[in-house]
Amino acid sequence: MFEARLVQSAILKKVLDAIKDLLTEATFECSDSGIQVQAMDNAHVSLVSLNLRSDGFDKYRCDRNLSMGMSIASMTKILRCAGAEDTVTLRAVDNPENIMFIFESPNKEKLAEYEMKLINMDQEHLGIIKTKETSYSCVVKMPSQEFSRICRDLSQFGESITFACSKEGIKFSASGDFGQATVKLAQTADADKEEEAVLVTMQEPVKLTFSCRYLNCFVKAGPLCAQVQLSMSNDVPLVCEYKIGDIGHIRYYLAPKIDD
């Protein structure tokens, strides 16, 4: 038996918004410690790693480990049926063929149940990728809205954005047929609010180029968290991380563009 309950179904809606443009289907690994998803986009350029800890749920029970293949489009359709204030419960039996989504209104007068068929995921199981969080040359924390804005604005100039990070701050630049654009963000000296701060932790400067298309998918996670964390080292994938309240995080890994 698997059962996971979240008082705020809005969190799950936002999580789906954050992955639906990158993934068509994904395996949800459920265990005693929580729910984990790791999946690459079709082009194998980016990897999405989603973690929802069991202690972050309002109720969580997982008697045996389950791997459930789910269509992200179908899941999105079902989550659209949840009211903004509804509670959501995910429920499956052991060896399930279906998963149940149960939405309950705050006054408990409306109870809606949706059943979704699981998919047999033929694709090779990824295993869980471990990364060393401390080994990045630059780690930047900045307002997620600002990051979304910069990706959107610079996407108008070309297909990719170059991130250059030094101890002064981070510089984003793009160029194309009609011109070029540069946005520099300095480290904030004293931000009034923590969520408005720009913080740079640098071991050595980095300069990396990334595809706008993927960055603009990642920023869909913006509503999950006021701050985004960008971890970078030269010649390795960017890690773009959004915390999901007290329950977990979503991390996107994006392969850089390399010189021919």
């Binding site: 082009a43 990897l47 890994y253 392969a255 021919d260």
Partner: peptide
Amino acid sequence: KKTQNKIDAYFKLQ
């Protein structure tokens, strides 16, 4: 000129 690398190249997928 830059080309898009694949993420597989960076992770040993089990």
